[in-house]
């Protein structure tokens, strides 16, 4: 069983939080808000495409809008496999962090 990479985890979580409104711009904003990291759109598109190929997210073409130069949006949503993957990461994280309250405190023997 392979575990999601950190960046994939971030993207999937963003999509999870955004629910129906997960597309390029909103994902970038969400990630920026939570982590302070600004994603590049080109890179984001490729990463999402790979996630879609792995079956973790699904893509849905939206309608074109004038604000976007007449181009449509792609809405992303989690697939059951995506949800499962997130769950697994969550479990993983929890077991990894179990019993650790504060990194500095716990390191001083």
């Amino acid at each position: 069983m392979d575990v999601l990479s950190r960046s994939d985890e971030i993207l999937l979580l963003a999509i999870l939080r955004l629910k129906d409104n997960a597309y390029g711009v909103s994902i970038v904003k969400e990630v920026q808000q939570r982590t302070g990291k600004t994603l590049k759109l080109g890179g984001l598109w490729v990463s999402l495409d790979i996630l879609a190929k792995r079956g973790l997210v699904s893509k849905d073409m939206g309608d074109p809008t004038p604000a976007r130069g007449g181009r449509s949006k792609i809405y992303y949503a989690l697939t059951p496999a995506g949800l499962k993957a997130l769950e697994r990461v969550n479990q993983f994280n929890r077991s990894l962090w179990k019993g650790i309250r504060d990194v500095n405190e716990d390191y001083q023997v």
């Binding site: 711009v25 598109w45 073409m61 604000a67 976007r68 181009r71 949006k73 792609i74």
Partner: peptide, 16 residues
């Protein structure tokens, strides 16, 4: 391809 064009849609939105 139409699909790839959507990125540029995202870019336009940001741009505005």
């Amino acid at each position: 391809s139409e699909e790839k064009q959507t990125i540029f849609g995202d870019m336009d939105e940001f741009y505005v």
